[in-house]
């Protein structure tokens, strides 16, 4: 495998969920489904950090969970170093689980409240059968990476005795003790105060620069993604609508949905624009997405064609893809 080959290849991945049927559904023999993720594809190389942005409910977490095999796709494949992660034998699967790690959305729920911090950090090493003699060094290394000094009393304390920022550092350290090649961080700072958030974002930048792993960083806020990811994907109702360098997405967003996301980013400036966002309402019902372009009922640019035809994700310039009939 050359250094330039993709580490992760996501190929037409979709995931739907069954939802409970109403009386009318049962009468008509319908099995309603939520299409959480539809036909997503992208590749990720070692050292690359990809942001995934979009509103709540657009499928970011569902996609992230498929990438590390917490749930299987309904169709499509995720390949890790060329191997389909859905078709791995037991041994390959164990290796994959060591090499791909998830950092949870909420640090307050991520750790077992009855375990000491030390035990929470040892657990993944034990599960991966790393020799006990190496544990101390691995843990010290991970704690250094997240800038936690590790006096004995800290390692022996319990999650409720730590602040949110310390907890999130522990959660990140726990993902790093196995020296993974790939991490998925799902809203790792959304539960934290801004003052503390900044420190975690700095750590994520360092992890990116020093460890050279591939990472996916999920958020609804482009101003956070920008600190960690050179490249970003915008998702809308389960589909990728734009993909490109983060800076370009922010400075010259093409898709009207990305434009709205940029405009919605909060800034601490009293002179900011109070113009209403260019999109109306909220996400439509994922059980019955609009025909054609899924964004069309909220889109300020929609034309007749948008209801009839699904816009394909087209390359508009090298490294920049957009799915829109009007702008691309």
């Amino acid at each position: 495998m050359t250094a330039d080959a993709p580490l992760i290849e996501v190929d037409s991945v979709s995931r739907s969920f069954d939802v409970s049927r109403s009386a009318a559904d049962i009468l008509r023999g319908r099995r309603p489904q939520i299409h959480a993720v539809t036909d997503v594809d992208f590749t990720l190389r070692r050292g690359e950090t990809l942001g995934i942005v979009g509103e709540s409910g657009c499928g970011k977490t569902t996609l992230g969970r498929m990438l590390i095999k917490l749930i299987p796709p309904t169709s499509g494949t995720v390949r890790f170093q060329g191997a389909d992660i859905g078709e791995m034998d037991r041994q390959a699967e164990l290796a994959f689980r060591r090499r791909a790690q998830l950092v949870f959305q909420n640090p307050f729920d991520a750790l077992n409240p009855h375990f000491t911090i030390l035990r929470s950090l040892q657990e993944p090493l034990r599960n991966a059968r790393v020799p006990a003699a190496e544990h101390e060094e691995r843990i010290a290394e991970a704690l250094r990476m997240v800038h936690l000094a590790a006096p004995e009393h800290f390692l022996m304390s319990f999650p409720h005795q730590l602040s949110g920022g310390q907890l999130q550092r522990v959660v990140l350290a726990r993902a790093l003790v196995l020296r993974p090649d790939f991490i998925v961080a799902d809203e790792p700072v959304s539960m934290l105060d801004v003052s503390v958030r900044a420190g975690i974002l700095n750590v994520l930048r360092e992890v990116r620069d020093r460890l050279g792993l591939a990472a996916v960083y999920i958020s609804h806020d482009l101003s956070l993604v920008r600190y960690v990811c050179a490249r970003t994907i915008t998702m809308y109702l389960g589909t990728v609508v734009e993909d490109g360098p983060t800076r370009d997405l922010i400075e010259s967003p093409l898709h009207p949905y990305t434009r709205a996301l940029v405009q919605a980013v909060p800034v601490p400036d009293v002179n900011q624009s109070h113009d209403p966002l260019p999109i109306k309402g909220g996400l439509p019902d994922a059980r019955n997405p609009p025909s054609g372009c899924r964004f069309r009922d909220r889109c300020p640019l929609a034309e007749a064609r948008c209801a009839a035809e699904v816009p394909r994700l087209r390359e508009v310039s090298p490294g920049r893809r957009v799915a829109c009939h009007v702008v691309a």
């Binding site: 920022g165 003052s195 974002l201 920008r226 400075e251």
Partner: peptide, 23 residues
């Protein structure tokens, strides 16, 4: 000042953010 400076910006240089350390 610390709360303000820790706030991530949408534009500007790709720099480190300044957290208020501790709690």
């Amino acid at each position: 000042m610390g709360l303000y400076n820790a706030f991530p910006e949408l534009s500007g240089d790709d720099r480190e953010l300044s957290p208020i350390e501790g709690s």
